[in-house]
Design a protein around this nucleic acid. Sequence first.
DNA 1: AAAAGTTGTTACAAGATGTTAACAGAATAT
DNA 2: ATATTCTGTTAACATCTTGTAACAACTTTT
Lengths: 234, 234
Amino acid sequence: MTSAAAHIVVIEDDAVTRTALAGYLETFGYRVTVCAGAEAAERVLNQESPDLLIVDINLSGKDGLEITREQRARSEIGIILLSGRTDDVDRIVGLELGADDYVCKPFNRRELLARVKNLLRRTAAMRQLARRVVHFAGFTFDTAARHVVGAGGESIQLTRAEYELLRAFVLNPGIVMNRDRLLSAITHRRNVTSTRTVDVMVKRLREKFGDDPKVPRIFGTSHGEGYVFTAPLA
Amino acid sequence: MTSAAAHIVVIEDDAVTRTALAGYLETFGYRVTVCAGAEAAERVLNQESPDLLIVDINLSGKDGLEITREQRARSEIGIILLSGRTDDVDRIVGLELGADDYVCKPFNRRELLARVKNLLRRTAAMRQLARRVVHFAGFTFDTAARHVVGAGGESIQLTRAEYELLRAFVLNPGIVMNRDRLLSAITHRRNVTSTRTVDVMVKRLREKFGDDPKVPRIFGTSHGEGYVFTAPLA
DNA sequence: AAAAGTTGTTACAAGATGTTAACAGAATAT
DNA sequence: ATATTCTGTTAACATCTTGTAACAACTTTT
């Protein structure tokens, strides 16, 4: 598995399937966001960069095929289509639009999980090959090398958790993230309860980046809500 | 897409299906090698590095699942299983062994083609890595000759285990691998107790490549999870 | 302004990794 | 065949990382 929990977005208008699917995937440590329709999903897809999309093909409004076409045009995100019908045409059209997989309902959960795992393994290589370097507040953050260089060229060493946290921040600039979400980004253990861990990690990041908690330039506090990455990304 | 035609190996004991499939794929410009069984296929797989494997699950002798297991243990080649039966168990086992897809006979040719295309797109990034000679951090690693040359042209001698470990790293850049996985890459024993062996091997690799564990440029540590290859591949 | 709740900071214990040394078995040379 | 060298593994201990508790400082609400 890759380090941080993979983020899976489920777009499904049937509430029962939606909830069951999300619950099942969550027990395997994935971060799951559920959407009832294309509109809600697009907000998520525009703000974040999920790793995998599971889409019902028969949605009211914009359907699964349309979503597949749009997403594939702009990203290499993994796409699994769900369908109630065993319809050859739908399946072939979906696959030809670039969906990676097509699963018919009622589907076997274990099978879907295996497909999710395999597809995440495939897309992980692609995601990592696209080396991303981010600049902010004079720092240079190489996400692939897990490495930060300061304004003066000095190397800043990050621990694993600090790296994951910083990555979560720069992937979601300007978005307030609550502690649960940040925690799921930095921890690999399942049975963790304390969200105060996040506070401590943020403090440690602030220390390494010289950010004053009273006047934060990079890691802002949103009282009662969580933290935000506020530095301009260059 | 890569410039050269993708190479697809079809392993299928039914001559009719085999020929039809090969002919169909060839009309789309793929290079296709057909094999009636596992033995013939292994000769091809050992000599060349095909891009995709289409395997019938019910072969006499070594079956498709066994082939899947073996191939997945040593490469990231794309694998599509074919089956005459609509058997949930077979399908799930196949997928859990790491097969990328599972298609039931009689299959729709157009559907299979779409799946082949999609899978080749996914594995393209990985095939890029499977090159014989890899450059990183000033070193040149010839995977076939098991030989490394440093920036100054000096030869760096690797032991078998070190070579296997380095190979596992280079094939999975930027992906955190846990000790079990790394261990299975360097050892072929079954009854392994301690995974600390990996730590020692990583230390020795770091020594030979001049990588400081406190500021790792090549072999990164992911606390609580494992190790990552973080050097940019050129 | 006091109360309630939230966040910042510090210190510490548990857990994980880095490193060295030692050793048995495998490979190689004599 | 025997001696020698090399390799992979294990154990032990030093060092680093991480999660948590406790309390101080701060913010919001009443």
